[in-house]
Structures are given as structure tokens and as C-alpha cells.
């Protein structure tokens, strides 16, 4: 079946098998491998992308369910000139990654969380990231980074 979606601003049209999951579509058909497959059971959040601006687990959606949607992956966050998104920059500044495997999903979940909660506090960040697991257990710095990004963004650093 034909599927059409915009990924990071570029329109893609492909013939896909109905059972193709969105994460494999992004990685293997579009070729954007920044989105990771972690647990493969809707738990870990490593595959989180934005669908029309909201965080979703791309391992738990068919590519066909994203037909007509606007998808943003980790590759689509930084500016074309390479300037990092405030959430990416805050992860870098706060050493919010160790092995880095969960990072793309954490960053995408954080972008969605900050959009939904302009007045983030620490408890909201911790609860809001419950769908993302970091097996290095680097949660403290991740929470610090998300709070730092939220305050940078509310102070007007362009997103």
C-alpha cells in the first residue's frame, strides 16, 4: 500500500507492506537511523518520534497509520546550519547521556513534554519521562537537562 508522510520537512511516498512498523519505515526505508529500536515492546521509548508535534513510540504504530502526518525525528531537530535544538544543547551541556542509546528518544519525549508544560518542574519532568528508560540510569542529568532546556526556551532561545 502507498504511504505518504513528511519526515523532517521532506515529503516521502513509498509502497509498503501493511505490517511495516513506523520505526522500521523511518530507519530502513527513509534511511534515518537516529531513531533507535530498544525494547521492541512499547516500553523503553528509544524509538520516540514526534507525530504532528506529539511524542509517540514509533515501534507501536504502523507506517500506514502515519499516512498524511508530519513526523519529526532526532535528525530533524537541529537547524540546517548545525545549531543544536535547545534540548539537544542542554543534554550536551548537562552531560545527560552516557551510552547514548536512549538519547534520541529522551530528547524527542522532552521536546513534546516542554511543549505541553510551559511551566515544567522537576516532578513533572520525572513523571513526563516515565515512558523512556535509560539503562545507564543517568536520570539525574537528563532531568537537569530538560529543566535547563525548558528555561532556555521560555527565555526565548528559538526552538
Amino acid at each position: 500500500m502507498q504511504v505518504r508522510m513528511r519526515v523532517n520537512g521532506t515529503e516521502y511516498v513509498h509502497e509498503v507492506e501493511p505490517r511495516l512498523l513506523l520505526v522500521y519505515y523511518l530507519r530502513e526505508v527513509v534511511g534515518l537511523t537516529g531513531t533507535n529500536v530498544g525494547c521492541d515492546t512499547s516500553s523503553c521509548g528509544a524509538c520516540t518520534v514526534l507525530l504532528d508535534g506529539e511524542s509517540v513510540k514509533s515501534c507501536t504504530m504502523l507506517a500506514l497509520q502515519a499516512d498524511g502526518a508530519e513526523i519529526t525525528t532526532i535528525e530533524g531537530l537541529a537547524s540546517p546550519d548545525g545549531t543544536l535544538h535547545p534540548v539537544q544543547e542542554a543534554f550536551r551541556q548537562n552531560h545527560a547521556l552516557q551510552c547514548g542509546y536512549c538519547t534520541p528518544g529522551m530528547v524527542m519525549a522532552a521536546v513534546s513534554l516542554i511543549r505541553e508544560h510551559p511551566d515544567l518542574d522537576e516532578a513533572t519532568v520525572r513523571e513526563g519521562l516515565e515512558g523512556n528508560l535509560c539503562r545507564c540510569t543517568g536520570y539525574h542529568n537528563i532531568v537537569k537537562a530538560v529543566l535547563a532546556a525548558a528555561s532556555a526556551m521560555s527565555a526565548g532561545v528559538p526552538a
Binding site: S42, G45, A109, S112, E130
Partner: peptide, 9 residues
């Protein structure tokens, strides 16, 4: 229910 990503879908 679940987590934010689950609640979005």
C-alpha cells in the same frame, strides 16, 4: 494510563 507517548495515541 501508560506513559505520555501511549496517551498521545
Amino acid at each position: 494510563v501508560g506513559d505520555p507517548q501511549v496517551r498521545h495515541r
